[in-house]
Amino acid sequence: MPVYNEKVMDHFMNPRNVGEIENPDGIGEEGNPVCGDMMTFYIKVKDNRLEDVKFKTFGCGAAIAVSSMVSEMAKGMTLDEAMKLTPASVADKLEGLPKNKLHCSNLGAQALHEAINNYRSKQQKEVDKPKATKQTHSCPYCEAEIAEAAFPYCESCHLNVEEAKSKD
């Protein structure tokens, strides 16, 4: 079986919504080149809905396919709906990702949420940043950030960080 399924390949070969939005209402950037992937999402908001979503991505096939799928799913959603978009729902919509590429779907959802947070903080100073999607842990071995939902499992090292620490 090829590494990526047909759905992922389709979004990689023909990514939807690539590009930047001029004067966007929000920008969200996640990842860094050290861990391999970096995504920037641009959003245009009208009547509390995502009127337009565009992205630029530096990364592997999965990262590009995830960005494309996130943009397609998010377009037309209300901001609250988009904030509920999870890595798992993106991966499901792509009909699955290889295990070691699941972190790409975290990155995609996070970058979109960042863009929405960016928009909201511009709208009003007081904003409740949803804590569930913020990364607060990092792996002591590869230094990659670990999503709250995945903690204490580092997906790039394939190990339980807490267990590993106690053994060290």
């Binding site: 070969m13 992937d37 096939g61 590869c142 790039s156």
Partner: peptide, 29 residues
């Protein structure tokens, strides 16, 4: 740009190469 994406697009043109990028390695390093 990133190696795996390059590798996949080259493959779509019938060209087989490899890459030492983090994304192409199973350990993501």
């Amino acid at each position: 740009i990133e190696g795996e994406a390059m590798l996949m697009l080259l493959n779509s043109k019938g060209i087989a190469v490899s890459s030492g990028s983090a994304c192409t390695s199973k350990a993501l390093k």
